[in-house]
């Protein structure tokens, strides 16, 4: 159980952040929505403040624990670019990503979000299974 304590606690903080944002500002903390609106110049101060906070979060983590959390990227640069383009197009077309659909959508029991989560988990699993040749 111990290896899952940090993921569980981290997840609970993510949920707390998302619901606090809704209670305080009335807005859904969906990162693709926030970033997309920021890119279009909508509510630049608010959306910019949220994104700045996202970047500050790991710095606070390092201040408290002495080091950054681990990060290993195995994808090559061309693959990283393709992945970024697909994540960008897909999250805007699908009206959300892992935060908006995954956290708040499921918490609101939204049928659209449930369909989105099942779909991106399915294509994500298929992609990694093919990428790693797991089957």
């Amino acid at each position: 159980m111990m290896p899952y304590l940090a993921p569980l606690a981290g997840g609970m903080l993510i949920g707390l952040s998302a619901i606090l944002y809704l209670i305080l500002t009335g807005r859904i903390a969906g990162i693709s929505g926030i970033l997309g609106r920021l890119a279009e110049g909508a509510s630049p101060l608010m959306n910019g403040a949220f994104v700045s906070g996202l970047v500050l979060g790991p710095l606070v983590y390092r201040l408290m624990t002495g080091s950054f959390p681990p990060m290993t990227i195995t994808a090559s640069i061309p693959l990283v670019i393709i992945a970024g383009l697909l994540v960008g197009i897909g999250s805007r077309m699908g009206s959300g990503c892992t935060s908006g659909h995954g956290v708040l959508g499921l918490a609101r029991l939204s049928p659209r979000s449930m369909a989105a989560v099942v779909t991106f988990l399915a294509t994500g699993v298929i992609t990694v299974t093919l990428l790693r040749g797991s089957l």
């Binding site: 990283v80 992945a83 999250s91 989105a116 699993v125």
Partner: peptide
């Protein structure tokens, strides 16, 4: 919703990153 989420999942799997 479905096509977008599908594309998103492929990108998420390829890079391991979401937004």
């Amino acid at each position: 919703l479905l096509v977008g989420s599908g594309l998103f999942g492929i990108g998420w799997g390829l890079g391991g990153f979401c937004p």
